[in-house]
């Protein structure tokens, strides 16, 4: 029984990291239809920013979260403004362009700070462990779980309860009609992309104490995040949450029964089959095409 609960908690922990990384991608993909292959690099930038703030400015991880969000969001804004907005009618080409941007970011970081692994310290207040259902769990993982849900809630509020969110939803429904009502689509898109990038940066900063930081760390995350978004359904934030935790539990569970490789392969296969039979994702109601 203990082992079972331990598995569940491992799954929740994997799931919260997945949710952190996937949330930004989900916003960008769901609202702009852009497959952002540079998303992993935004995660990487966030992790490096955490490292820089810590080792050069002496800021703790928690104190640097807001500046990291702003820095990575600024990167995102620039990229949307000067690259992606030129590709409005060519969705397939945005894959290529964002991939190129990702390569550039990765390589630029490698040239500037080298490809050695970097380490970020756990916040001292969270380096202990807590008691959850009679099991001792690292406090930081509990913290990640709470933060990921909080960020989801913030994003949901932003989308559904603010003017910017309303404008964005209007553009998603019909860009030209929204524009004729005076919505500045370009600006909203740039802000959306910046927000998504900022979230990825936060995710990178938050996972940096758990994993080593390297220029190519983003590659794995972008694939995982993608799977979450595809499984959850493109325009459904709640679906993203559900699928992040489902995938977390699944890969935790299969890895426990089999090995990591088999777990990965099975999850990928499941996704392939899912795309074939339910391309709109598990958690979206079928709307008219």
């Amino acid at each position: 029984m203990d082992q079972f609960i331990e598995q569940i908690i491992t799954g929740l922990s994997i799931g919260s990291i997945l949710l952190l990384v996937a949330l930004g991608l989900s916003i960008i993909y769901g609202s702009m239809g852009i497959i952002n292959l540079a998303h992993g690099e935004f995660v990487m930038l966030g992790a490096y920013a955490a490292w820089v703030f810590h080792s050069y400015l002496g800021l703790g991880l928690l104190a640097s979260l807001v500046p990291i969000f702003l820095v990575v969001a600024a990167f995102g804004w620039v990229i949307e403004r000067y690259v992606l907005s030129l590709l409005n009618n060519r969705p397939l080409d945005t894959i290529l362009a964002t991939w190129g941007v990702g390569i550039m970011l990765q390589q630029a970081v490698r040239l500037m700070v080298g490809s050695e692994l970097r380490y970020v310290q756990l916040p001292p207040a969270l380096s202990g462990s807590m008691d959850v259902f009679g099991l001792s769990v690292s406090s930081y993982r509990v913290f990640l779980f709470v933060v990921s849900l909080a960020l989801f809630a913030a994003t949901w509020l932003l989308m559904n309860r603010t003017t910017v969110g309303m404008k964005l939803r209007a553009i998603i429904q019909d860009r030209s009609v929204a524009a004729s009502f005076g919505v500045n689509a370009k600006r909203v898109y740039a802000l959306t992309f910046a927000y998504g990038a900022g979230l990825a940066g936060l995710a990178g900063a938050l996972v940096s104490p758990l994993k080593s930081v390297s220029p190519d760390m983003g590659t794995g995350y972008v694939v995982d995040a993608f799977m979450v978004v595809v499984l959850g359904g493109v325009q459904s934030l709640a679906g993203t949450v559900a699928s992040a935790f489902i995938l977390g539990e699944l890969s935790g569970g299969i890895a426990f029964l089999q090995n990591d490789t088999v777990a990965k392969a099975l999850v990928l296969l499941a996704i392939v089959v899912l795309i074939r039979f339910r391309p709109e994702g598990l958690f979206t109601a079928r709307v008219r095409a």
Binding site: V83, D93, A97, W99, G100, V101, I103, M104, Q107
Partner: peptide, 10 residues
């Protein structure tokens, strides 16, 4: 190469 690629795509 990354930059060149982005420019070509654009």
């Amino acid at each position: 190469m990354g930059a060149l690629f982005v420019l070509v795509v654009l």
